[in-house]
């Protein structure tokens, strides 16, 4: 519609201030990517310890260690993105509860506390029962920690592309993708074939569902809003087209293919390649989706 309007009026901005640059850039991409791994591996650990407790007991400590590392990477990038990072404590002392940022900060703090409790249980007390009990609560907290970024994107009213239903699905799928990929890399050949198959299926299905959502946005998004159509031009022949498709191939298409091949050939090696590709591609696809709505002039 905008295209036709411009053709009819030949309206050109002839004097204005320069547009603001990217507000949320690669630091926020790192934030989302690290969080996907930090919570995703907890989801997968919960599943594996319930379904295959005897074959996956050894993951307890490495899982909590990886989650702690990646959640702290997420927190680090969250804080350094603040223009006044030393006022971070304001979130806890002047909380505004309508903000997804506040909710996310509180939830992430609780999540870190639970992770430290799990680490204490398995490393200091060697108490697997306590670890598993804490994991039940940690996995519940992992859900809002995963989803709050979708809420934040949805609250970014200016950016029409980000809608809560699709973004929340994308966040959960990203966590499952990253979590299963990291678990595949963590387990080496220690996992039984049944566990490997389960991980492959989770990775493949998460990649497939994510890809379907992106394609649905790409095709049907422009039909709903003029702004979405304008934003998607950046990945439909625009300056982010190549990067978008690199992300889609590496995060979703290649892992899907390799998962199918690995299941057919019983090849764990292919599964590891799929896992690495998914983790790298996830960063790229997240970054493109984060940046493109910010390229559009708001006024």
């Amino acid at each position: 519609m905008a295209h036709e309007m411009i053709a009819a009026s030949n309206a050109i901005v002839t004097l204005d201030v320069a547009l603001p640059g990217i507000v949320w850039g690669w630091i926020i991409t790192m934030n989302m990517w690290a969080k996907s791994i930090g919570t995703g591996i907890i989801f997968l650990a919960f599943y594996l310890l319930k379904k295959h407790p005897e074959q996956t007991g050894f993951i307890r400590f490495p899982v909590v260690a990886i989650s702690i590392v990646f959640i702290h990477i997420f927190l680090f990038f969250t804080v350094i993105d603040l223009h006044q990072m030393f006022r971070f404590w304001h979130i806890f002392f002047y909380p505004h509860l309508t903000s997804a940022i506040t909710i996310g900060a509180w939830m992430a703090t609780g999540f870190v506390g639970m992770l430290l409790g799990m680490a204490y249980a398995i490393y200091m007390k060697k108490d697997e029962a306590l670890y598993d009990k804490l994991l039940n609560y940690t996995v519940l907290l992992a859900v809002p920690v995963t989803l709050y970024t979708a809420g934040l994107m949805a609250q970014s009213t200016a950016r029409e592309l980000w809608q809560m239903p699709t973004e929340s699905a994308q966040m959960i799928l990203a966590a499952l993708l990253a979590g299963s990929a990291m678990m595949i890399l963590l387990g080496g050949n220690k996992f039984s074939d049944a566990v490997k198959k389960d991980l492959a299926i989770v990775l493949g299905l998460a990649a497939a569902a994510s890809f379907i959502l992106y394609m649905a946005e790409l095709i049907f998004g422009p039909m709903k809003a003029e702004e979405v159509a304008a934003v998607l031009h950046y990945v439909k022949g625009g300056e982010y087209t190549i990067m978008f498709w690199i992300g889609q191939v590496m995060a979703f298409l290649l892992p899907m293919t390799l998962v199918c091949l690995s299941l057919k050939n019983q090849s764990y090696y292919l599964l590891k390649i799929a896992a690495v590709s998914a983790l790298v591609g996830l960063w790229v696809s997240k970054h493109v989706w984060l940046v493109i709505p910010q390229l559009l002039p708001m006024s």
């Binding site: 949320w24 603040l82 903000s99 940022i101």
Partner: peptide, 14 residues
């Protein structure tokens, strides 16, 4: 203000 820029991202009027 902590400079999170959430408001910058939220304002539809730039």
């Amino acid at each position: 203000c902590i400079g999170c820029a959430g408001c910058v991202m939220a304002c539809p009027y730039g």
